[in-house]
């Protein structure tokens, strides 16, 4: 390898690291913020003040107030709890369930693998959000049902990855050696297979955080997610969308919040993917 390529690789490695630290810190701040959101609000997010309704942004209310005179900034801050929490919960659930099913199929094989993979094909064949709408519609509104609906359509991606990874792991000499050492199925799965396939799966789930946050907000926007008065970004935008021509800031505030957090999580996911790429590692 020439000196120049080595140097370029080193520079790329360094920028990836810087980006990782930057976006990691931002995502972490976002998380901390959502955990302590109740203590961070300048005003009471549920306090109505009709005399001060639809106030334009000012020093007292940076994002203005909504039609009930509630402080938008406080509502956006409190809304982070519902939005970020439920997104992370959702991604965690689909990662665990999808990986579990995928590893089981890959390891076990036979008819049960065929059946489960056909089912996952069916889910993959539907346009995602349309199907989630149908599921959420059947289950009824509520954040919990929205999570269930999105989980139902999102696990197959993870099952596919986990299955193919497990299949390739199964053929490796070290897995044969582990069997020869007398390790049982569970031990092999938890000690050898999972640690070796976690990389690509974690990258996928990091990249999915942004997408899921948007889809969850989308369902809420359509009235199939969080129900008022719970502050949730998607439903806040939906509540205020009739006011967009007269008092645009009430829609703008939660929109900006969604935009910024989706951006941060997407960039973090991208960076983690680059970081996990062996080409960027000085091996």
């Amino acid at each position: 390898m020439s000196e120049a390529t080595v140097r370029i690789q080193k520079i790329r490695k360094d920028t990836v690291k810087t980006r990782l630290i930057l976006f990691g810190t931002l995502a972490f701040l976002l998380l901390i913020g959502s955990v302590f959101s109740e203590h961070l609000t300048p005003c009471d997010p549920y306090l109505q003040d009709l005399t001060n309704a639809k106030a334009a942004p000012s020093a007292a209310h940076i994002f203005g107030t909504d039609r009930y005179g509630r402080d938008m900034l406080s509502r956006v801050i409190v809304g982070s709890r519902a939005s970020i929490y439920s997104t992370l919960l959702l991604v965690a659930v689909i990662t665990v369930v999808g990986t579990g099913i995928g590893v089981f199929c890959g390891w076990h094989g036979k008819w049960i693998d065929t059946v489960l993979m056909r089912i996952s094909d069916m889910f993959l064949a539907f346009p995602g959000l349309v199907f989630a709408l149908a599921v959420a519609g059947v289950l009824g509104g509520g954040l919990q049902n929205a999570i269930i609906a999105l989980a139902a359509i999102s696990w197959p991606k993870y099952a596919r990855i986990a299955r193919s990874q497990t299949l390739s792991q199964k053929e490796t000499p070290y897995l044969k050696a582990a069997r020869l050492s007398g390790s049982g199925t569970w031990k092999i799965i938890f000690k050898h297979i999972l640690p070796n396939i976690m990389g690509p799966i974690l990258v996928t789930s990091m990249l999915d955080i942004g997408t899921m946050m948007m889809e969850l907000a989308g369902l809420s926007f359509l009235g199939l997610g969080a129900k008022p008065p719970i502050a949730e970004w998607g439903s806040m935008m939906s509540d205020t969308r009739s006011l967009i021509t007269t008092v645009p800031w009430v829609t703008f505030a939660p929109g900006l919040a969604i935009f910024v957090s989706v951006m941060i999580f997407n960039l973090l996911g991208d960076t983690i993917r680059d970081y996990a790429d062996p080409k960027n590692r000085g091996r």
């Binding site: 490796t172 050696a177 007398g182």
Partner: peptide, 25 residues
């Protein structure tokens, strides 16, 4: 095994691999 380097789990130490059968017993 025919391929020694690949017969050890890349994410575990050699000691782990060597002791695995003992631990299992």
């Amino acid at each position: 095994f025919q391929t020694p380097a690949e017969s050890f789990d890349p994410r575990r130490t050699l000691g782990d691999g060597i002791g695995e059968s003992l631990r299992n017993n």
